[in-house]
Design a protein around this nucleic acid. Sequence first.
DNA 1: GTGAAAGCGCTAACAA
DNA 2: TTGTTAGCGCTTTCAC
Lengths: 345, 345
Amino acid sequence: MTETAPRPTLEAVAARAGVSRATVSRVVNGGDGVREPLVERVRKAVDELGYVPNQAARSLVTRRHDAVAVVVAEPETRVFADPFFALQLRGISKELTAHDNQLVLLLTEGRDDHARVARYLAGGHVDGALVFSLHLDDPLPGLIQRAGVPTVFGGRPGWSGDQRGVVYVDSDNRGGARDAVRHLVGLGRTRIAHITGALDQTSAVDRLDGYRDVMVDADPRLIVEGDFTPAGGERAMRELLARCPDLDAVFAANDLTAAGALRVLRESGRRVPEDIAVVGFDDMLPVAEQSDPPLTTVRQDIEEMGRLMARLLFRGLDRHTAAQGIGVAPSSVVLPTTLVRRTSA
Amino acid sequence: MTETAPRPTLEAVAARAGVSRATVSRVVNGGDGVREPLVERVRKAVDELGYVPNQAARSLVTRRHDAVAVVVAEPETRVFADPFFALQLRGISKELTAHDNQLVLLLTEGRDDHARVARYLAGGHVDGALVFSLHLDDPLPGLIQRAGVPTVFGGRPGWSGDQRGVVYVDSDNRGGARDAVRHLVGLGRTRIAHITGALDQTSAVDRLDGYRDVMVDADPRLIVEGDFTPAGGERAMRELLARCPDLDAVFAANDLTAAGALRVLRESGRRVPEDIAVVGFDDMLPVAEQSDPPLTTVRQDIEEMGRLMARLLFRGLDRHTAAQGIGVAPSSVVLPTTLVRRTSA
DNA sequence: GTGAAAGCGCTAACAA
DNA sequence: TTGTTAGCGCTTTCAC
C-alpha cells in the first residue's frame, strides 16, 4: 500500500518544453504535423517528468475509452470449472492489448446483476462489449442490445428477440458433431448413443442437431440428456447402459461428459473402444489427453474464438468512427472444428 | 452492432427538473441535504431522460475511478489450465461488485507486457491493484510498487525487493503440507515421498518446507521436482518408483500432479491406497473428486482468498481517503487449510 | 506549424 | 437548503 503521487499534467510538460499545451498534445498523440526539433523537445520533457496522460480527461473530450467490457453471464459455476472461458479470455486479452484497449470484466451471478451490467454499459464507460450469454432464456442480450453499445457475442445467442444486426462468433457445433458421429459410423458402429449437453444452451442444441443429421432414424432411447458435467455424464451413461445394453458407441456433448461416461464404462467392465467407442467434444487437453483411454474428440480453437470476437468488435467500431456507411458491417463467424483421433474411438 | 445514442447530461436533467446542476449532482450522489420534494422531482427527471452519469467527467474531478485492476502475471499457460485463477477472480468480482467497483483485467504474457502494465497502473486509471505474481524472479511486483498504486498481492510474493508495506493474501501452504504428511504418518506410512510443484513459485517452496517440517530426516531421494502439471506428476512418479521401489506414500504438491502420479501407479500395478497412499493439494473438485480413486487432499478456500484480497484493498483505500493515519494499515493474511479425506489416503 | 481559447460533464467551494 | 462559479486535464477548432 503505497501513497499515490500527484501526476504531472500536459501543462507541466508544455512549460518544461517551452511550447503550448496543444503542441504537447499533438506529440503525445502521434506527433503528426509537428516539426522534428519540437517533437524531440517534447518527448524529452515527457520522459523527464514521467508524464502519463489522464485518461479521464481525454475520454471526456474524445468520447472514446479504449476499453472493452467482457460480460460473462453465467449463473452457474460451470464456466469456472473448465478452462474454456479462461482460454477465450486470453484470446480476447491478446487482441485488446494489440489495439491498446483495456479489458473490463463484468461477471454476473444471476438476475440481480443484470441491471447493474446494463447500467454500466449504457453509462458509456466502454467502447464496446463482448458478451458470453450461454442460456436460451437469458434476458441479458436483449438488455444489452437496448443499451446501444456495439456488441459481439461469444457463441450463438439463443434468445428470441430481435436478431437483426446481431454479431457472434461460434464454433461449428453442428458440423463438428456430424464429424464425430460419422467417424463412429465409419468405425462400423451402428448403435451410437448421444449424451447431450445442457439443452438450454445453443451449443448443446446444435451438437444434438448434428448427431441427428447423421443418425436420422436414431432410436430415441439412444439420446439421454446430460449437463456438460462429469457427474451428468455418469448418470446418463448408467441410464444408457440400462436402456440399451447393446449400444456400441457414445458421442458425448463435451469432454467432461465423456470423462464421466468413461468412468461408468470402466466400472461396468466394458472395454473402450473395443466394446464401446467414445467421442467427446472440445479437446480440453487436461481432460481429453489424460483420460483413460485418451479421448477422441472434436477440437475447437477457443483462443482464436476470443481473438476473433475482439477483432470483429474493432472492425465495427472503426466503421462507426470512419465515414458513415463505408466499410462492410461485420457479420457473424462460425469457426470450423477438427476431429482429433486418440484411442477412445 | 448498434448505434450509440447521445446521452443526456446533468444540465439536461437540471433543466427538466427546474433546478440547478448542483442539486441534481447532489441527488444523484445520494441526495443528502436536498429537500424531499426536490429529490422527487430530480429522480423523476433522471428516469424520464434515462440519465446516467458520465464517469469520465466525474473521475476528472474526484480523482476516483471506482475501478480496480487485477493483474495476472503468468507467462505460462498453466493458470488457464486450472480453475484456480477463475475461482479467485470470482471472489474478487463479488467483492468489487459489492463496493460498486469495476474490474479491469490485465493479463500479461511475458516481459513485454510488464512495461505496459506498469504504465497503465501509473497512469492513474484505477484506485488500486490486485496482483497475482507467482514467480520468484518476477520483476512485476517491483515495478508495481514503484507505480505508487495501492496493491494487494495474491499469494506471498517471492521477490527479493523491499518488503515493507507489502500486503498479501495466501493459503497456509506450509501448514497444509504438514497436515497432509502428518496424515500419512498417522496411517503408519514411513517411506513418504514428495513431488514438488514448480519451485520458482512460493507456494511450491512452502509446501516443500511443510513436508520437510514433518519428514525431518527424509531420504533426499524421496523428493522429486514436479511442475504442478499431470505430465510432471507422471514423470516424477516414474522416477520415484525407479529410485525407491519401497515407498508407501506420496504427497503431491497439487491435485493435478497427484492425478498424474495416480495414473503411473495404476499402470505399474500398485494399488492406491493399499500399497501406496496419495495425498494432493488444492481440492480442485473436478480433479480430486473424479480421480480414481478419489483424492485425499488439502483444501484451500480459493474464492475466499479473492474476496479477501479485495476487502484488504478497500480497507487500505479507505484509510487513504479518511483522516490520515487513522485506522489500521492492512496487513497480510494467511488463510487456514483443511484436510479432505477421500479414498486415496 | 504553432498557439490561444473554448469547452467535454461533472463536483465542490462558496454565496445567497 | 439551493444556486453560482470555478476548475479537473485534455483535445480541437480556429487564428496567426
